[in-house]
């Protein structure tokens, strides 16, 4: 009984009209919470102490690390949506992975640029072709490829199915990015926050980092919900225009 109710609730949410109503209610709260956390995170980012080795460049970490996490989380959201497209053929899943791709590309770009701006003063170079940096660069190219693919096909459901297959094939890059620093000898340092034995960084740096990470995650979900809503409206406009053209054709 409870299970069927839960399934019905989930399928109600998956209905585009219900999704639009829910988005209207949720977005202002999500945006407000994101702004508050972003303000607190930025305040802490510039008021906490610098690192004894890195100096003030540690402040770049408070935007670089959340952006890098989001670049992988966004692709994981797209992979889950791709399963929704291929297994349940649900139109909202198509909308979800199409809307997420530009956001993923933007956060990956931020991670690459801020990483490079940290690398120059700390490593002495803007870029090295080590496993972590190269795999993240490939992720960026994959996002661009998926955006181009979606825009090159007129039929949205066909584009969604082709994109979904490519997204799932490309998902192999996510564990490669995560574990590249353990599997290969990289210039990029290994994980210092998400570790089995707990974070190894000082709380002075951990707090601003975590608050900025939550703020960036909320920003992603705000933008994703907005972009999904735009895509639903875009498809409705296209459907109504087709309908209008058909009606005009019958009238001739």
């Amino acid at each position: 009984m409870t299970e069927s109710l839960a399934i019905r609730k989930f399928s109600d949410l998956a209905n585009p009209t219900c999704f639009l109503a829910l988005a209207e209610r949720v977005l202002p709260w999500l945006a407000a919470l994101c702004c508050v956390l972003l303000a607190v995170g930025l305040f802490l980012s510039f008021t906490t102490e610098g690192d004894y080795q890195q100096g003030d460049t540690v402040r770049i970490m408070y935007i670089h690390v959340p952006a890098a996490w989001l670049s992988m989380m966004c692709y994981s959201v797209m992979a889950l949506s791709a399963i929704g497209t291929l297994v349940w053929r649900h139109p909202l899943a198509d909308v979800s992975h199409k809307a997420a791709a530009p956001l993923g590309a933007a956060f990956t770009l931020i991670a690459l640029v801020t990483g490079s701006l940290w690398g120059k003063p700390m490593w002495g170079t803007w870029w090295v072709w080590d496993a972590r940096l190269t795999s993240v660069f490939i992720l960026f190219l994959m996002y661009l490829g998926l955006i181009a693919l979606n825009r090159s096909m007129d039929d949205p459901s066909r584009a969604a199915r082709v994109s979904a297959v490519l997204i799932l094939v490309g998902f192999v890059n996510i564990p490669i990015i995560k574990f590249s620093v353990d599997w290969w000898n990289t210039l990029h340092q290994p994980a210092s926050v998400i570790r089995l034995d707990g974070p190894t960084i000082d709380p002075e740096f951990l707090w601003p980092l975590l608050i900025m990470a939550v703020a960036f995650t909320l920003l992603f979900f705000c933008l994703h919900i907005m972009a999904m809503r735009n895509e639903i409206w875009r498809r409705r406009v296209a459907t109504q225009r087709r309908l209008a053209a058909r009606m005009a054709g019958r009238g001739d």
């Binding site: 003030d56 770049i60 935007i63 670089h64 933007a106 931020i110 701006l117 120059k120």
Partner: peptide, 17 residues
């Protein structure tokens, strides 16, 4: 220290977001 790199990183992030 390294103000140019820090300011540029935040400016690029702000511009993209």
């Amino acid at each position: 220290t390294h103000a140019f790199y820090i300011v540029t990183a935040y400016a690029v992030t702000a511009a993209v977001v």
